[in-house]
Amino acid sequence: MLDWLYQLWPGLETSVTLLSLEPPGWGGNLLRGAVNSIIIALGAFILGCVIGIGGAMGKLSGGPITRDLLAVYTTVVRAVPELILILLLYYAGTDLLNQMLRAFGYRPIEISGLVAGIGVLGIVQGAYATEVLRGAIQAVPKGQIEAARAYGMTPFQTFRRVTFPAMLPLALPGLSNLWLIATKDTALLAIVGFSELTLETRQAAGSTRAYFTFFLAAGALYLLMTLVSGRLFGWIETRFRRHQVGARA
C-alpha cells in the first residue's frame, strides 16, 4: 500500500519499521513513555493546583509570617532551575522520609520514580500556581465576597460558592500555561533516570543510531499533547466564561 511512498522516499521504510509498535520497533516504548509523561504531568498539575490554592489563600489572608514564608517559597522556586530543584528535592525528600521512617521504627523504602516525580514537579508547579491564583482571586470584586459574608456564609462556604467560581475563568489562561509547562517539565525527569518519553526516546535513538527519526517522533508526540490540551483548555474557557457579560470568547 505504501510502496510508492517508500520508493519516493527511501529512508521512510526503515523509519516506519523502527517506529512500529512491536519489537524490533520502538514505538511501544515511546508510547509507554508518553503515557508515563502524561500521568506525571497530570499528578504534578493537580498537586500544584492544590498547593497553589493553599498558597494563594495564605498570601492573601494569612498572617505576616505565613505571607513572608510563602514569598520566600515562590521567589526561590521561580529563580532556581527546575533541574536543581528536582535533584535537591529528590535526594532530600527520600532522605527525610527514610529518616522519619527509621525514627518510627520502620524499614527505609525506595521511593518510586513516579511518586518522586509527581511530588517534585508538583512543588515547582505550586509556586507558579500560587501566583496565578492569587492574581485571579484578587481580581474578584470585593463586594461579592463581602456580600457573601454578610449573608452569613462561613469563609469556606464563601470560597466554594463565590470566590472559587468567580476566579476560575480569570485563572484559566494562567493555569493552561502551567499545564503546558508541566508536560514539558516531565522531560527533566529523564536526567534523574525516570523512563518517561524523552529518556525512552534517547535510549531508542542511542541503540539504533536513528536520532532524527526518534527525536522527531517524540517531538510530534509532545506537540500533539500540547495542541490537544490547548484545544481542551480553550473549550473549558469558553464554557466557564459564557455567563460573563462582554467577555471575549
Binding site: 503546558l180 514539558k184 517539565d185 516531565t186 522531560a187 527533566l188 529523564a190 536526567i191 524523552t198 526516546t201 534517547r202 535513538a205 542511542g206 543510531r209 536520532y211 532524527f212 527525536f215 522527531l216 517524540a218 517531538g219 509532545y222 506537540l223 500540547t226 495542541l227
Partner: peptide, 22 residues
C-alpha cells in the same frame, strides 16, 4: 508553536545527537 510545544531538552538532544551524527 513547535518550539513552545516541545521540551527544550528534546530540542537540545535532537540538535546535538541528530546534527552531530549527520
Amino acid at each position: 508553536t513547535i518550539i513552545r510545544g516541545t521540551p527544550l531538552l528534546l530540542q537540545i538532544w535532537l540538535i546535538y545527537f541528530g546534527l552531530g551524527s549527520l
